[in-house]
Simulated assay, not measured.
Amino acid sequence: MKLYYVPASCSLATHIVLRELGMEFDLERYNPSEGQTETGSAYAGINAKARVPALEFANGEVLTEGSALVQYLVSQTPEHELALPIELVARARVQEGLSFVASDFHKSFSPFFSADTDDAAKERAQALIVKHLEYLETVFGDGREYFIDNKLSVADIYLFVVLRWVEASGLELNAWKKVFAFRERMNIRPHVQSALEAEGLLEAA
């Protein structure tokens, strides 16, 4: 398998999951400003949406969208601690958590990664991020270590990646002490560290 990625972007979640599962894969960096990968391939020919992540299989088939990718990957290793629960409600709760992170929380940061965003839009986005962080602080307020049912899941990995963007929005995550502690716990996981190192992000971690 080959993972197409942009450092520190949402593709980091898929990257971490691949390492947590011990899967063999290659990395190929995508440069959005040039529309090409590091080997000179036109990325639009790999993923017409021109977004990361994209996972390319040996037969040339490509799968995209982070939530779909992490669920696909853990389905290949049903005995791993990251595997989706068998019980349907527990499984749906993990998917619920993934949906929140991918659709609500992730999207609220978009204005901070666009050069065309005006200050008013950034202020509205920051207010929404604060709302999401307050929700998360309440979730972790019961003493749990992990986001969903206090059990490590792919939702935690995706959440960790998005929480790394908080400071880029002008906020300081340590204002939400329990959420900050969660990010710190996830950050020191060995496979998280190896993914950060591979993407050149350890100094920014």
Rank of each mutant, 00 (worst) to 15 (best):
M1P: 13
K2D: 04
L3W: 02
L3Y: 01
Y5P: 06
A8Q: 10
A8S: 14
S9W: 13
C10V: 10
S11C: 00
T14C: 10
H15I: 04
D26M: 02
D26Q: 12
E28Q: 11
R29S: 04
S33W: 07
Q36T: 00
A42F: 02
I46Q: 03
I46L: 07
K49F: 12
A58S: 12
L63Y: 09
T64I: 14
G66E: 07
S67H: 06
V74G: 11
P78G: 00
E79K: 06
I86K: 15
L88N: 15
Q95W: 13
Q95F: 15
S99R: 12
D104F: 06
F105W: 04
H106P: 05
P111Q: 05
F113I: 09
T117E: 11
A121I: 07
E123G: 07
R124F: 07
A125W: 03
Q126C: 03
L128P: 05
L128A: 14
V130W: 00
T138F: 13
V139G: 01
R144Q: 09
S153F: 06
V154K: 06
D156C: 07
I157K: 11
Y158Q: 08
L159M: 02
V162I: 15
R164Q: 03
L171K: 04
L173F: 08
W176K: 03
F180H: 15
F182Y: 12
R183I: 02
E184I: 05
R185I: 03
Q193Y: 14
Q193A: 14
A195H: 12
E199D: 13
E199A: 11
